[in-house]
Amino acid sequence: MKDTLLLDAGSGGRASRRLVDECFIRHFDNPLLGRMDDAAFIEDIRPPIAMSTDAYTVTPLFFPGGSIGTLAVHGTVNDVSMLGARPQYLSCAFVLEEGLSLELLDRVTADMARAAKEAGVLIVTGDTKVVPRGACDKMFITTTGVGGVFADPAPSGRNARPGDAVLVSGAVGDHGLTVMGSRENLSFLTDVASDSAPLNRMVAAVIEQAGPVHALRDPTRGGLVATLNEIAGQSGVSLVLEEEAIPVHESVRNGCSCLGLDPLYLANEGKCVCILPAERAEAALAAMRNFPCGAEAARIGEVTAAGKTPRVSLKTRIGGVRLLSMPEGVPLPRIC
């Protein structure tokens, strides 16, 4: 392990994974944690529950399409949902910086309350700490969510099988580009907004209407590519995507092109990847498209047997092929 922590360790890419493996898994190792899905699957409580926790820090606190408050609810609701569970209860812990505007705190809390109501979850316990000025950046929020697992078997990143279809519930890259744009005041990024949204109802409808799915995951940090590489590695399969089929909004494509970024590597906060037997793909897509957050759902590729090693590759628009490799650290705009 390197001596000091770099920002890359929070990127969702390889650097994050190394930190988790070399520190947390090494100390905490147990079979439930070892599954490495978006939420833990706890079977010895009957019926089984899914539990997930996430810490939220974002600059700026408010951005087009959401805020740290909406993320803190949607992110955890979505992680619990990815286990084929119905998120019911959230806890939340606030770390607040001395000198924080109470009006700001009120706005964030109101956002959380609205988001929880929309998702149909209750925030039932919490904690507050205030730290001296400079000890944190305005506010950090941690939420934990639990819910009963209704999918049987529960989806897992380890269950993708050759022949499965790969679906995404909508256009990718909006959240990552929006936050970067707001943080850096990039004035040329006009019509982009975060996709922050709860996915629990859509996921429930997909499983009810299309049957159990093999893998479900929300492609947050590291984007679609990091998530699919994780699934490929966990399941020991390869994935082949069609560039033409992956929904990306025109404004996001243009913004990324200016900054030398790839939308497939940018975070999403209201999208899921769904991998299931190909014959049930259409039913799942139809179920997704009944919801605003799934209106642009698309079938973007298929699962194949792994070659020498599990890989994710892309058939490009012009008919070429390239790898989609696991990102290393934080996406950095290039010198242009």
Binding site: K315, T316, I318, G319, R322, I335
Partner: peptide, 16 residues
């Protein structure tokens, strides 16, 4: 040009 490098690979042109 670095942008050409990326364009050649990212578009898949190099494979064609």
């Amino acid at each position: 040009c670095g942008t050409h490098t990326v364009a050649l690979f990212q578009s898949g042109l190099i494979s064609m």
